[in-house]
Design a protein around this nucleic acid. Structure first.
Lengths: 236, 236
DNA sequence: ATCCGTCTGTGTGTTACCGCACATATGATA
DNA sequence: TATCATATGTGCGGTAACACACAGACGGAT
């Protein structure tokens, strides 16, 4: 795997954007972690010991229904972090964080992070802006779930994932995508088939290749653009 | 209208929960506002001059689609505030805030609020915890929109509104509820009719009366409970 | 090379919600 | 009391997504 990149804290854009002074103060408190596909970063309602800054990994925030079905409310990759509850004050969140794309992250002990946050400097500022971006992503997911068709949501999901990867290939079965989107596997098969017919993607057995990104951007609903622009504005 | 209550800052639970010292420092900077039904508190993408703490009013956060349809992503009442973007750092949000139930609020100039927030004390702590609660409400709305039927969502919406009112009567047409939920008006008519048959609510021309709150709580999906518990835990 | 678990494709019938059209009821106002 | 804008009820056809069943296809392991 991408050993050097995955363990370099600057692989995480949020950390990389810190002023040198803040970055260097934080650096000694960061330690690398490797995440496997499907690994649970934290469980719904569970207290976390660390905050995670993905470098090459992508993490999905999922709500697990009592009856076993699930739906994704947001995703985090190298642009952000996993564990906002640790500095927002609640400590826990009623959702599960699952590794959606294997890769690396760096982590920081909760206590150290909280002390740094309490300094009120640039670190705090970036964390709060990131949280606002996440807020937008989640709220737009709510809108998209209500008003848009599976095919458009699949485009949105593919683009959000692609933005957080350095490759055009997503390792992901249709079954897993269905769990993320909160729809049936057959629904994903049908939507993915239509995208493939249009030449936007190609896929074989758990691997999806993005062939025509501009084409996907033309096929996606406005939700993707709203979220993307807000991330760029707040974190860019 | 409820003149005294609506203008008393302690009508807002978030302000009322502040330690006396913080509350008294903030009090001189609060001024009362009256909101009419349908009034736009802030427009999508617009910079705000004030943060609002509702006392008797309820405000909906709506996303307006390019094609004119809309969907609610969250609501705020006396338990919270409107304008998280002002302390989260983004300044604006890509959604509209509309008065869903007429009533009062107190407001505070953005600059003053930001200075108080930067002190890093209890005020900051409460604001961040509230924002985490809002995050949960929005993400649970996403899940609910994906997985649950209109009737359950209507129950959720009625209960969330009822929690923020001192009366059992909601002044709200089915047409407006449909805009909030992002569904057809006829869909609301049908769902509301079923709730009325069960004796849970009664309504006539723009007024809905909550008759059997425990019954509604039995009919609602788990989403309401998740959000409620998180609000109680974080702000209680 | 074969086996077998997993992933993907497809068909059938059902349901929830949509869009449209229009009938009826309410209550404020003249 | 009559009028009228607005709110609500209802019917009908269309469609997207559902649940279930099963067939084929791939690719790693023996």
């Amino acid at each position: 795997m991408q050993t050097t990149e995955a363990h370099d804290p600057t692989g995480n854009k949020l950390l990389a954007s810190l002023p040198r002074e803040d970055y260097e103060r934080i650096l000694p408190h960061l330690s690398p972690v490797a995440f496997a596909l499907g690994e649970v970063v934290y469980e719904s309602g569970a207290r976390m010991d660390h905050i995670y800054f993905p470098t090459t990994a992508i993490v999905s925030l999922l709500y697990m229904m009592e009856n076993g079905s699930s739906a994704e409310m947001g995703i985090a990759g190298k642009e952000g972090l996993v564990g906002v509850a640790l500095f927002m004050g609640g400590g826990t969140m009623p959702n599960r964080a699952v590794v959606q794309s294997a890769g690396g992250a760096v982590r920081m002990r909760a206590k150290v992070m909280q002390e740094e946050f309490a300094r009120g400097g640039e670190f705090q500022r970036r964390l709060l802006r990131y949280t606002q971006a996440l807020l937008t992503q989640m709220s737009q997911t709510a809108v998209c779930n209500r008003l848009h068709a599976i095919e458009q949501q699949l485009c949105r999901w593919l683009l959000l994932s692609h933005d957080r990867l350095d490759t055009d290939e997503l390792v992901m079965t249709q079954e897993l995508i269905a769990n993320m989107l909160g729809v049936r596997r057959e629904g994903v098969t049908a939507a993915a088939g239509r995208l493939q017919e249009q030449g936007l993607v190609s896929y074989v057995r758990g691997r999806i290749l993005i062939l025509d990104r501009p084409g996907l951007e033309a096929a996606v609903c406005e939700c993707y653009g709203v979220v993307k622009e807000e991330y760029d504005r707040l974190l860019g």
